[in-house]
Design a protein around this nucleic acid. Sequence first.
DNA 1: TCCTTATCCATACGTTGTACGATTATGTAC
DNA 2: GTACATAATCGTACAACGTATGGATAAGGA
Lengths: 230, 230
Amino acid sequence: MVNGGKRSGRPRAGEERLSRDAILTAALGIVDDEGIDALTMRRLAATLKVNPMSLYHHLPNKAAVLAGLAELVFAGLELPDPGDSVPWDEQLKQAARAYRDGLRQHPNLALQVLSDTAAVSDVVVVTMEPFYRALDRAGLAPREIFEAANTLIDFIHGFSLGEASVRAETFELAPDLLTRVRALPAHKAPTLTRIVNDLGADGLAYDFDSGFESGLSTLTAGIAATVRRR
Amino acid sequence: MVNGGKRSGRPRAGEERLSRDAILTAALGIVDDEGIDALTMRRLAATLKVNPMSLYHHLPNKAAVLAGLAELVFAGLELPDPGDSVPWDEQLKQAARAYRDGLRQHPNLALQVLSDTAAVSDVVVVTMEPFYRALDRAGLAPREIFEAANTLIDFIHGFSLGEASVRAETFELAPDLLTRVRALPAHKAPTLTRIVNDLGADGLAYDFDSGFESGLSTLTAGIAATVRRR
DNA sequence: TCCTTATCCATACGTTGTACGATTATGTAC
DNA sequence: GTACATAATCGTACAACGTATGGATAAGGA
């Protein structure tokens, strides 16, 4: 009993006990505050004022903690469904924006979440319902609905991955890109070079929000074209 | 000198020496064969028949090894450019397919590569030239070219991430999805439920290749719509 | 020849995930 | 009540990891 006032053995009836949920909540706090690397079993246990090995009673290993976090983030997602009061493409866009926002809430977890969606696809599949509904309203066939939803989801994932990576390094895209391209031998990428010169420094200022909107518009336009082709 | 026939100190002139390239090549081999977790500095050194600390003469730390691997994969990419002999949308699709194929070559590295593109954007920016060229031919304005290219790249990234994650777990999407959706209370996701029932088990068989093609078609159709809107 | 620099090796430290077993309470069966 | 299986925690310990430090040896220019 070298421990500071901490008894060994099973806690008494009234005492608060550890739980999977408590562990995951604490873990999420650590990750949000200090990044994914700060999350170690020892650190997690210390935060909960508990022996590291106690955690293993509720979760089999660290991988399970990470998977649990991904699950938590996904479970917290709620895509709005404005219903039929707006055109289908606006409905789709709103759901897409909400999905992106949800993923942005825990940037330090983005990588974990995005590479773990398979593990949590229970939740995913239900969460995406607004996507399916909007696409159904657009007049797509069942198979097309699936394909279009997947395409949209893939776009959001790729976009979010970029967003999270860049944010993690406080990397400034625009000015960097400009100098880099200017330093290139022009013949290696003539079109790129010309575009960059046409745009100038101002035109290059990259903005995640408008980039996302632009992607959404392209995708909905593409989907609309699928519908029209019948 | 407990070591098995290995001398200490600088190697003699003729002897083969370590190099950044040799290290990265060996690392790539390990990752491809046994996954990213199998890559440790000690294991890497053992493969090269070298003391672990020798590696640090050529690379500052393990993170640099991983970044180097991402760079390697990207440098190996070559997007074909069929030129103006095909329509712009076909040109764009061919480049996109090649990009996806390149990322698929080292599935165990997908996450690393995709979350590290910022670090290697020198290479990226040049590699994407065929994208820009095709979009230029389509008749987009400079700013639109950028936006469309980014959208396409984000889609490919998201798609590749899903492909890599799933492959890593030998997860079978289709049958799993079917049983899962059937188990749902229908009111939680009515559209999804109806779609799944309409399609049946056969119609659900998911195929990455056709999923990718479907995404490409949607995107090119959306881009074409942008052009037409002028 | 001397000296700087390149290259590699040996040892060692702090951290990590977690296997194992001891310790203490709970809840059920008799 | 009294056993007893089970639950929950703690303490110790270990192997593996990344890498800091410093020593050994040779290369190559002064």
